[in-house]
Nucleic acid binder design. Structure first.
Length: 373
DNA sequence: AAGACGGGGCA
DNA sequence: TGCCCAGTCTT
């Protein structure tokens, strides 16, 4: 750390070299991804939404299925939210899907189906922030907006030995200013993708491949042998673990599923009813109580199915899943916005959270036969 | 300015 | 396990 010379900006000569080397490297080494086949702003938009906090490898199959189902923005606007969520099932951050669908509807109804070419008009749409607007406008329309994502921040932090943590919200403006100064305005879309591609393929978080980096000569962190020091990052807090009870309520061979409210965690998804265990409460008691509270039904536990562990961003859950027999009562929803009694094969028509998808394959295929006998 | 919001992959 | 990822919205 002794001889580390920190910088807050590039000098002009470095700028030219970095731009040239970066773009040449990108042309030679970039991946061939489905949203790079053309400059269709709709496809680029969809891809950028899916890529938020999500790796390329994860997003690709979702992207292909999504544009297959909705080839154009008009097709997306015409679709039901439930259908959109089903295509998003398992991808996470479901507000992205709700916002993208709402934005598509708004573009069609208010903007003649035209994706805004003005930055401020674009960011006025739900789910479109600085990053999405910069990415789509630069890649589809060639506008000079620098993207700042996690890749860009990591690359810049290393190039300049930046002192500020990348996950400090107040530092974002500083990264944006630096990215703007580095942007190659001759081809902003290609340059933006080049920086992000470098972050994804070469300047990776754990073990960067500095030996093949096209801008290694300009890297402050590398020259100071401090690659592992950057980027700086604030420590994250420990997350709590909740104990959940979930019931597969069976009535005449049909299963009860409920739909979560549109806002908040897993908004709009379907699930098997249940909820958090209270202090000192048994898993079975919590299952019966939660189902009564959410649906108004009285049930009894018939057997234990399995225990599921699942991690969210801010907490973990340990979920005990029980088979329940319907006893009495009519459905009166308190919390969920909808419910249905469904047969086992019908499950695949609904979008479920991952925690539910982990136990759904275990549900006994002979449920119907057993109940009849 | 901090917290909410999913899920997967990797060391 | 803990970290981190082509961010945005709410409070």
């Amino acid at each position: 750390m002794n001889h580390l010379k920190k910088m807050s900006e590039f000098n002009h000569a470095d700028l030219l070299v970095i731009r040239k080397n970066l773009v040449h490297w990108y042309d030679a080494c970039h991946r061939h991804l489905p949203w790079r086949e053309n400059a269709d702003p709709y496809r680029i938009w969809v891809s950028e939404v899916m890529l938020q906090q999500t790796r390329v490898k994860t997003a690709v199959p979702y992207f292909l299925a999504f544009v297959e189902a909705f080839p154009t923005l008009e097709d997306l606007a015409k679709a039901d939210l439930e259908q959109v969520l089903k295509l998003w099932e398992g991808l996470g951050y479901y507000a992205r899907a709700r916002n993208l669908h709402k934005a598509a509807c708004r573009v069609v109804s208010d903007l003649h189906g035209r994706i805004p070419s003005r930055f401020s008009d674009f960011t006025a749409l739900p789910g479109v922030g600085d990053y999405i607007a910069s990415a789509v406008l630069s890649m589809a329309f060639g506008q000079a907006h620098a993207v700042v994502d996690a890749n860009v921040k990591r690359v810049l932090a290393r190039l300049l030995c930046l002192d500020v943590p990348v996950n400090l919200s107040s530092a974002h403006r500083q990264f944006q200013t630096i990215a703007d100064s580095l942007l190659d305005r001759n081809d902003p879309g290609r340059f933006n993708q080049a920086v992000m591609e470098l972050g994804a393929l070469v300047c990776t978080p754990a073990v960067p491949a500095c030996s093949v980096c096209p801008i290694a000569d300009n890297c402050c962190a590398l020259s100071a042998a401090q690659i592992q020091t950057f980027p700086l990052r604030l420590k994250t807090k420990k997350i709590p673990c909740h104990r959940i009870s979930t019931g597969i309520v069976i009535k005449n061979g049909k299963l009860l599923v409920t739909r979560r409210k549109l806002s908040g965690l897993l908004g709009g998804l379907w699930e098997f009813p249940g909820g958090k265990r209270l202090k000192g409460e048994t898993a079975r008691a919590a299952c019966i109580r939660e189902i009564k509270e959410e649906t108004g039904l009285d049930v009894s536990i018939s057997s234990f199915l399995t225990r599921i562990k699942h991690a969210y961003t801010h907490f973990k859950i340990e979920m005990d899943v029980f088979y329940c027999d319907y006893m009495s009562g009519e459905v009166t929803l308190n919390g969920p916005i909808d419910y249905q009694w469904i047969s086992l094969p019908e499950i695949q028509r609904f979008a479920f959270p991952k925690a539910n998808l982990k136990f759904i394959p275990l549900i006994d295929q002979t449920l119907n036969a057993r109940k009849v006998s």
